[in-house]
Simulated scan of single mutants.
Amino acid sequence: MAELRDALPPLYRELLGEPFAEEIPPESKATCSACAMLERGCQGSAVAPVDGRSRFFSPDTKCCTFHPRLPNYLLGAILTSDDPALAEGRRRVAARIASRVGVSPEWLHPPRTFTLLYDSARGAFGRARGLRCPFYEADAGGCTIWAHRDAVCSTYFCKYVAGADGRRFWTAVKELLSLVEIQLARAALLELAPDLLDREPGLRPASATPVGPEDIDGAAPPEEEYLAAWGAWAGREVELYAACDAYVRSLSAHDLDGLLGLDGRLARRAVRRALDTARSPSLPPVLRLDPGATIAWLPDGSVALGSYSELEAVALPGAAYRLLARFTGDEPISTVRARLRAEEHADLSDDVLLELYRQRVLVPPPRRAAARPGGGGPAP
């Protein structure tokens, strides 16, 4: 198995330390080169959505209907790379910097109009060309800046080998990487151009101010707004980004730990705990069929069940579904299985139950609130 750090941009390989040297199972369900979310790739195993709304991705977009927020040092890594595979990415990043749209000393932000559309859209992820990433190469079906992608793009998978536990693990990794991006971008500016940190930010994120005519037209911000953010570095953006990249590459894992502080320790702990659960899951003693699970009966008499994600379902024989209905959360799994063997001459193996739990088709019952002394109802 590969190490966790092998799944991330190479810049972080020597920076992140524990637990990123741990081995992780490959996310074999999420196949980017042969997208697992394209209808043509399902080979007859597709399940019609119960609400009539397709979840398949478009071949023109795949999951790249997202605009990354790239920190200054990753921009510098892209711009200074001599890797031929990044040539198109370098060209696109340079053009974006020249446009001044969403360009700040710390980040390359999504345009404000993009964020408004993304936050307001329904059923558009993976399908709307208007949300396609500017660094996505449609003809090749791949990313032009993959080696230096951001935290979100490094940790997103449409399906997870470990089901809900896998999603929880990669979410924890994303939160840690997001903290790393923030602290490294700020530390680089503090070292190289501290006056830019002291300035009133003129280039705010999309949600901070209403959009103006230049936002709607995709034009550069007003000159005074841009100069307020960049000061003497205006026109030298590439130089600053390259210096940020060099600064980050000079840091050690110990340096990064100091920058992350207590928040970093807590985030690493969350990654470790989630990784342990994803690699070594255990069945809760009591389970019930998730009352919110999506159920679709198929023409061959089998049933598709979805719970934790609308992009993934598990198929079972119809007879097995009737067995699942016996899991009500009122008694231990062992008792339910003994009754199934005695009354139905059937059973569900540990492996099947574990997979159904990972998919959260089977879930622990809600915890009952403890009664207050004197019978006064639930504790606050």
Rank of each mutant, 00 (worst) to 15 (best):
D195L: 06
R236C: 08
A21C: 01
T328Q: 08
P285A: 14
P317M: 07
L283M: 04
A2D: 14
P364D: 12
A379Q: 10
L262G: 08
G301S: 01
T65C: 09
E27L: 11
D83A: 09
T294I: 08
L177C: 01
L203C: 04
Y160V: 15
R167Q: 15
A270W: 05
L79W: 02
G231N: 13
R269S: 12
Q183F: 10
I145A: 00
R91Q: 14
Y357L: 05
A162Q: 05
C153V: 03
D60R: 15
D330T: 10
G126I: 02
S309L: 01
R269D: 14
F57P: 04
Y247R: 01
V336G: 04
D119Q: 14
S252M: 08
R96Y: 06
S349P: 01
E22Y: 08
W297S: 15
E343D: 11
L8V: 00
M37T: 02
R132H: 06
Y247Q: 03
L116T: 10
A320S: 11
P194I: 09
F20G: 03
G130A: 15
T209I: 14
C244T: 11
Y321G: 04
S334T: 12
T65L: 05
F114L: 11
G376M: 06
V238A: 12
V152G: 03
L227Y: 00
A193R: 05
E223M: 10
R279I: 12
F169N: 00
T277A: 15
E344L: 13
A320Y: 06
Y12R: 00
S33D: 11
A151M: 07
R53M: 14
K174H: 14
R100V: 06
R127N: 01
S178G: 09
L227S: 05
P378E: 05
E355V: 04
R132V: 11
D347M: 03
S178P: 03
R268P: 03
A85C: 11
E175R: 10
